[in-house]
Design a protein around this nucleic acid. Structure first.
Lengths: 110, 110
DNA sequence: TCGATACTAAACCATTATGTTTAGTATTCG
DNA sequence: CGAATACTAAACATAATGGTTTAGTATCGA
């Protein structure tokens, strides 16, 4: 199991906890590369607010932003989501292993 | 892809964003069934604080609490973590598919 | 029954999160 | 150059989070 920094997971899970950020990430995860203005378009929220959501996603390592003229090209970065998934998987696996052990134990005890 | 309620994911990811809660969940995910006092033991934090972390995990559906005499038996509930993992997987998959398509495209363009 | 145990509830405080509006900085285009 | 575009920064209001201490409530055990 790769040793992931605690505060990295903090930031990643916190970033994923907001529906607007999940929506933005979802769009980018489908391969789209979009400007902040384009990302803001579906939301009933100021551009400033969206810009900060984008920054939170960037700080969590979930996306990257590159200045391109006067706009920013935002793209998905798969590393952080992989780490979060890894954490969840590891814990689900432990549970599954535990459950299997219990099942075997109960079978033997019959 | 199962339709998971947005605010359920909000609560689940928010619950996972705190290291103490991940630690508690990790313990329970390994199959342990523990009282709040037992869960609080490793932390340099009041029992009251831990009790509230436990409640946040419970509200997110990650664990359940059952009154047993004067203590509460806390146990792992695999559903919510599965939904969170499902969300992450779905988005990783899309990206992977996108990447593969791009790779094919670039190969053809050579 | 009376005190200890295992909590949860309530009140409080400091900090962080999330939105707003208003400014300011680059960059492009006529 | 000068206006429009695409942001980010700053200042602000409000709500939520995360901790504390102090009070309850329920249960157990002598």
């Amino acid at each position: 199991m790769p040793a992931v920094q605690e505060d990295t997971l903090d930031r990643t899970f916190a970033a994923l906890a907001h529906p607007a950020r999940r929506a933005i990430l979802g769009r980018l995860a489908r391969g789209e590369v979009a400007s902040v203005t384009a990302l803001a378009e579906p939301f009933d929220m100021s551009l400033v607010a969206v810009s900060r959501h984008v920054k939170i996603l960037e700080d969590a390592g979930l996306i990257s932003r590159k200045k391109e003229g006067r706009s920013r090209r935002c793209r998905y970065e798969p590393g952080a989501i992989g780490e979060a998934k890894g954490w969840l998987e590891a814990h689900q696996q432990y549970w599954t292993a535990q459950l299997e052990a219990l099942t075997r134990y109960l079978k033997d005890a019959e």
